[in-house]
Amino acid sequence: MDEEKKDAAQSFELVLSSAARLPGVRIDREKYLVGALGKKFSLEVVATAVESSPAAAGIKPEELSHIADASIRYESTKVTAISAVAGIPGGFAMAGAVPADLAQYFAHVLRITQKLAFLYGWDHIFEGTEEEIDDETKNLLILFIGVMFGANGATDAVTKISNQVAAAVARKLPQKALTKGAIYPIVKKVAGYIGVKMTKDIFAKGVSKVIPFIGGVISGGITLATYAPMCLKLKDYLAGLEVANPDTYVVKTIAVEDVEEYEA
C-alpha cells in the first residue's frame, strides 16, 4: 500500500473510532430485533431470532426486506437532516462543521450496518467493547462499509467470514480471521480505499458549505444521494449470504435405515 492510501486508511480508521464513541451509535441487538420483528412474527419466532438469528428462526431474507427498507429510510432521513443543518452556517463556519458532519455521517453508517447485520444473521458486533472498539470489531465494520462503498475485495472477505460462521452455526465471529491471515491485508486495502473516497467527500461538502443556506440543501442532497444507495447495496449483499439463509440452520436427520446399515 502506498503512503497516500496508508495515510487515508489511518484517517478513516480514526474517523470510524470517533464515530463509534458517539451517543446512540451502538444498537441493542435484542431490543432492535424485538421491535423490528415483533409486529409481523410470533413471540416464539422472535425469541428464536433473538437467541440465534432470524434465519435460524426460519425467516427468509425476502420476508425481512421491507423491515430493512424501513430502517434504511429512518437512518437516511436522520443523517440527511443533520447534514443539511450542518451546511446552513456557510462561510468560514465550515471549518468546524465538516468534521462534525463527517463523524455524524459515519455514525449513521455504523447504525444501519448493525441493523442490517442483525437482520441478516450476524450476532452482537460491539459485544464486550467499551469506549474503544477492538481490532476485530473495527476490521469487520471496515469490511461491511467497504461493501457499501464498492471497495474491491470487501465482498469476498465478508463472504469467507460469513461461510465460517454459517458452517459452524457459531455465535462468535472467527476473530483470528479478522486480525491475521489473508483477510487482514484486505481490510487495510479497503480502509485505504474508503479513506480516499472520504477525503473527496469532505472536499465536495466543504465547497457546498461555503454558500450559506443553499449549501445546506446541497450538502443534504449529497448525503441522501450517497447514503441510501450504499445502504441498499449492503442490504442486498447481506441477504444473499449463507448466514442469512434459513436452510443453513435446518438440522438434517439421518434415516433410521441408514443408521442401522452403518451400524451393521
Score class of each variant (00 low, 15 high):
146 G>A: 05
78 K>Q: 02
116 L>Y: 00
84 A>F: 12
79 V>S: 02
260 E>V: 03
228 A>V: 13
35 G>E: 12
216 G>H: 12
114 Q>L: 09
176 K>W: 04
143 L>M: 07
88 I>W: 12
144 F>K: 03
62 E>Q: 03
176 K>G: 05
4 E>Y: 14
8 A>H: 13
258 D>C: 02
141 L>Y: 01
15 V>F: 08
244 A>D: 04
22 L>W: 00
161 I>E: 08
252 K>W: 02
172 K>N: 06
73 R>N: 12
165 V>I: 11
229 P>R: 07
127 E>Q: 09
58 G>L: 10
155 T>L: 11
86 A>L: 12
245 N>Y: 11
46 V>S: 04
124 H>P: 05
153 G>W: 05
252 K>D: 10
186 I>L: 06
147 V>E: 05
130 E>S: 15
116 L>M: 06
59 I>M: 01
146 G>Y: 02
263 E>H: 05
117 A>K: 03
37 L>S: 01
11 S>Y: 13
186 I>P: 01
28 D>Y: 03
179 T>Y: 01
167 A>Y: 03
254 I>G: 04
227 Y>W: 15
200 K>H: 14
73 R>D: 15
26 R>H: 06
211 I>H: 13
175 Q>S: 12
123 D>K: 15
184 Y>A: 03
262 Y>H: 00
45 V>Y: 11
107 A>C: 04
208 S>N: 13
141 L>E: 02
196 V>F: 09
35 G>C: 04
55 A>P: 04
177 A>L: 05
125 I>K: 00
105 Y>C: 00
141 L>A: 00
2 D>E: 07
160 K>E: 13
98 V>L: 15
72 I>L: 12
233 K>Q: 10
221 G>D: 15
49 A>F: 07
152 N>C: 07
67 I>G: 02
137 T>S: 06
3 E>W: 14
114 Q>C: 12
101 D>Y: 11
218 I>L: 14
69 D>G: 00
98 V>Q: 15
73 R>E: 12
27 I>F: 01
84 A>T: 14
221 G>K: 05
183 I>T: 03
253 T>F: 14
24 G>K: 02
205 K>F: 10
216 G>I: 04
196 V>I: 15
139 N>M: 06
101 D>S: 11
89 P>D: 13
233 K>S: 08
5 K>L: 11
34 V>A: 10
245 N>W: 13
156 D>Y: 03
224 L>V: 13
203 F>G: 06
39 K>Y: 02
48 T>M: 09
233 K>G: 02
15 V>N: 10
7 D>L: 15
199 T>G: 11
58 G>Y: 14
152 N>Y: 07
63 E>G: 00
163 N>R: 12
63 E>D: 11
5 K>S: 08
257 E>W: 10
203 F>M: 12
109 V>R: 06
70 A>F: 07
153 G>V: 11
53 S>N: 02
23 P>F: 07
96 G>N: 05
109 V>A: 11
236 D>Q: 10
61 P>Q: 02
212 P>C: 11
261 E>S: 09
51 E>C: 01
205 K>Q: 15
101 D>V: 00
18 S>C: 04
170 A>R: 14
128 G>C: 11
66 H>Y: 09
147 V>I: 15
211 I>V: 14
124 H>W: 12
